[in-house]
């Protein structure tokens, strides 16, 4: 109290400095992201051409395109969502609409959290032990898709649960009052309102799955397979594994650098497109639901 003025000034200067520092760090992190994106886009964009996207790799993967890897990733993403989407949405419905709060619900939530926290290489080990060996699928699109589907499951469950939670209870009560059963209410009232948010979650899960490498290492990914897969019991190439392979192994790492930059560019482009799509969807439907 003796020198209120100087104390006050010190306080102000201290605050200004700390605010500046935390602001600087925040923008620094954003700048870092842009640096990574810019670097990969700048190095990769020159490689991208119609031929790069639609041709087979040639010359020990130093020339040609990445067509089989793109197709392989599409198969894997599609296959994993075929499993994770219905199961995950139904699990989300159960947790939010049916499960009564108590130890059982807490247990389910804990298990979903645990599943989300399991490292991706563990999914790879598990997929190899269960799908590839025990069930005898071998290294195949089927085994890889199921493994990736397990990894995507907690994401779908979480987003479904959150989306359902945000649906106002009055909608449900109105439906019950009109004689709708529980399932009928969920199907006709709750799900349509929550659908945009659920779809956003699905899109984000697609983004996650398309870039995962560790789960497919031993379950499906082929080092070099310059043809398209014939069936779901076939191996296939995949974008993230392709990037790993051509940037770390092989004898011509330098020669295949352009291909690596191009592959990284495609992966980053998928992530950007997926995130922008999700943001647009959320914005567009977010407004629409509010109006109702």
């Amino acid at each position: 109290m003796t020198f209120p003025e100087s104390n006050d000034r010190r306080k102000k200067i201290g605050q200004a400095v700390m605010f500046g520092v935390s602001k600087g760090i925040s923008y620094g992190i954003v700048a870092l992201l842009f640096l990574i994106l810019f670097f990969i886009i700048k190095q990769g964009i020159g490689v991208i051409s119609w031929e790069f996207l639609t041709a087979m790799p040639t010359d020990g993967m130093t020339k040609g395109g990445i067509y089989p890897a793109i197709i392989g990733t599409l198969y894997l993403v599609g296959g994993s969502m075929l499993f994770a989407f219905p199961v995950g949405v139904m699990a989300g419905i159960y947790v939010n609409e049916y499960a009564v709060s108590g130890p059982m619900k807490r247990f389910i939530n804990m298990m979903t959290n645990n599943l989300a926290g399991v490292p991706s290489i563990i999914f790879g080990l598990f997929g190899m032990a269960l799908f590839v060996n025990q069930m005898g699928f071998g290294a195949s699109i089927l085994a890889g898709s199921l493994t990736l589907g397990l990894l995507a499951l907690p994401i779908v469950i979480r987003t479904t649960e959150e989306s359902l939670k945000s649906v106002d209870d009055t909608f449900r009560q109105a439906s019950y009052a009109l004689g709708g059963s529980k399932l009928y209410t969920i199907r006709k009232v709750v799900l349509p309102i929550a659908l945009p948010n659920i779809l956003t979650g699905l899109i984000l899960a697609v983004g996650r799955v398309s870039g995962e490498t560790a789960p497919i290492l031993f379950t499906v990914a082929a080092y070099f397979l310059p043809r398209l897969p014939n069936s779901i019991m076939d191996q296939c190439m995949a974008l993230p594994y392709h990037l790993y392979v051509i940037s770390t192994s092989g004898t011509q790492i330098e020669a295949s650098r352009p291909i690596a930059y191009g592959t990284a560019f495609v992966l980053v482009a998928i992530v950007l497109i997926v995130n922008i799509l999700a943001a647009l969807l959320r914005n567009y439907f977010g407004k629409k639901v509010k109006m109702n």
Binding site: L33, F39, G211, L243, A260, V271, V274, N275
Partner: peptide, 18 residues
């Protein structure tokens, strides 16, 4: 916020490559 969250969306193999 969404920009920082985008950091989480970049595949780990791309981080490894970078």
């Amino acid at each position: 916020k969404p920009i920082i969250e985008l950091l989480a969306g970049i595949p780990s193999v791309v981080y490894g490559f970078f």
